[in-house]
Every structure is written in C-alpha cells, then in structure tokens.
C-alpha cells in the first residue's frame, strides 16, 4: 500500500516537473501573466478607479467585490457548520 502510494506520488511529481519546463522562469518580467493587458490595466488604473493605493485591496474589494462577498459568506457558512456539528452538548 505504502509502495503503491509512493509510486503514484513519484510519477505525479515527475509529470508536474515535466509540465513545469514550459512555464516562465522565476522572476521573469516577460512572463505572459505579467505582460497580460489585464495586469497592466490594474496597475495603471486602479488608483483612479477605486482610490486606494494598495492594488491588491482594489482588486479584492472593487473589481472582485462580488467574489469577496461570496468568500465572506463561505467563512460565515463554515462557522455556522462547525456550530451545528459540535454545539449539541448544551441542548
């Protein structure tokens, strides 16, 4: 069982390393994700559009505000789920 798990893990790791050869080098400024128009747009325009200097906050609360609302709902739901699962000893 342990040998089979180790085998699966090594094969998967080798495949991931092989797939990673095509990814951009570490810290490469010409990487596609950095040169994408969207990224450059966020860096240039987030101050005028949302008024905050922290670009991550501008992304989180303004451009992706709906997603962050869902995220807050997720953490609220997790809290409620744990209460439902464990808080039965009082009743």
């Amino acid at each position: 069982m342990k040998t089979l798990a180790l085998f699966v893990v090594v094969i998967t790791g080798a495949m991931l390393i092989y797939a990673g050869q095509d990814l951009p080098a570490f810290g490469d400024i010409n990487s596609p994700s950095y040169q994408a128009p969207m990224t450059q747009y966020f860096i240039e325009n987030s101050l005028e559009e949302s008024g905050v200097t922290n670009i991550v906050t501008a992304l989180l609360a303004n451009y992706r505000g709906y997603d962050t609302l869902g995220e807050t709902a997720v953490i609220f739901t997790a809290g409620m789920a744990v209460i439902l699962l464990l808080r039965r000893r009082e009743t």
């Binding site: 101050l47 005028e48 559009e49 949302s50 008024g51 905050v52 609360a61 303004n62 505000g65």
Partner: peptide, 11 residues
Amino acid sequence: AEVSKYLIDLV
C-alpha cells in the same frame, strides 16, 4: 474615487 476609498474601508 474618494467615495470608493471610504466604502472599501467600510467593506
């Protein structure tokens, strides 16, 4: 932009 800043703080 200023309104947006304060509402982001509220959020």
